[in-house]
Simulated assay, not measured.
Amino acid sequence: MADPIRDTDGPRHVAIIMDGNGRWATQRRRPRLFGHHAGAKRVREVVEACPKIGVKYLTIFAFSTENWKRTQVEVAGLMSLFRRYIAKEAKALRDENVRVRFIGDRVRLDKKLIALMDELERMTEPCTGVNLTIALNYGGRDEVARATRRLAQDVADGHLLPENVNEETLPKYLDTRVLPDPDLVIRTSGEARISNFLLWQSAYAEYEFVDTLWPDFTAEELGRLVGSFGGRERRYGAVKA
């Protein structure tokens, strides 16, 4: 069993806030959607790198509940990109033994996209390799609010006693209930904020904020960040003996 104070192994679960697509495109005097397409291509390289560096779970932040505030053109372009990405990559993901899940509120998404998401989850369910979770129309506060409503309904229906509600109860109602908490959260593009991503789950995660814009983020850079993780002290509120 590993020392609870120091992790000698790499992170089992890495979560990434993929930021910087728009700025990457602007630097090249191209539309923002050009950057989003470049960023989507980068996802494949990162997913393929995970088994080689010991990452079993990868969660990526694709579209937040706040991203609806962007221009109608950009939002429509992103939704089209998601549909095309799923349709194009589905077979490859299954063939590479990648299990795909989606988290977030699907109610606002169009029916065709939801159907593609459902089908991708179904066809990759038997896969036992990397667990890829895509956060789509996801927000940490929204997730906790939805989980709390479900929990409150179970209390109201008599399925759960109020005195049995504790910090182990709520995670069972979260979108990520079948996943381990992230060990390492990476944000690209030089911004140093968490942007409403996995708020509950990341309470004890290690963070890395890197300057690289997402379309330039490579498997090699991911490997360096994962490699440096093993030297970190993770006390979980305790003190070193």
Rank of each mutant, 00 (worst) to 15 (best):
G54L: 06
I53R: 14
T65M: 06
T65A: 13
F63P: 02
R122K: 15
D175K: 02
G140K: 04
L184E: 14
N137H: 09
D19Q: 06
A38V: 03
R150P: 01
R29S: 15
V100A: 12
P51A: 12
E167G: 08
V47E: 14
L93E: 06
D183V: 01
R32E: 13
R44T: 06
E66N: 10
R44I: 07
L222K: 02
L113G: 03
K69H: 11
L151R: 09
R83V: 01
L116I: 03
S228H: 10
I16Y: 01
H13A: 10
F34E: 15
E220R: 11
T212N: 14
V155S: 03
D19S: 05
L116G: 09
L78W: 03
D175Q: 02
K240G: 05
D211R: 14
V100M: 11
A152M: 11
R193V: 01
N164G: 13
A87Y: 01
G129Q: 11
L151F: 01
F197K: 12
N21A: 06
V55G: 14
R193Q: 13
V239C: 13
P4D: 07
Y138P: 06
D211W: 00
I186M: 08
P182G: 09
C50R: 11
H13Y: 07
G230V: 05
K69M: 03
L132S: 11
A156I: 00
F61V: 04
E96S: 15
H13G: 07
L225S: 12
Y204M: 07
Y207E: 01
R83D: 07
D157V: 00
D3Y: 02
A87I: 00
R42N: 08
D110W: 05
L170V: 09
E208H: 04
G54N: 10
I53P: 12
P182N: 07
H37Q: 14
V210L: 07
I103Y: 12
A40C: 07
V43D: 13
L78S: 12
L174N: 07
E121V: 03
R141W: 02
G231W: 05
G104V: 01
T26R: 15
E66Q: 13
G190R: 11
F209T: 08
D157Q: 09
T188H: 12
Q201A: 09
A203F: 00
G139C: 07
N137P: 03
Y173M: 09
K111P: 00
R70W: 10
V107M: 11
V210H: 10
E48F: 01
N97T: 01
W24Y: 15
R108M: 12
R106M: 08
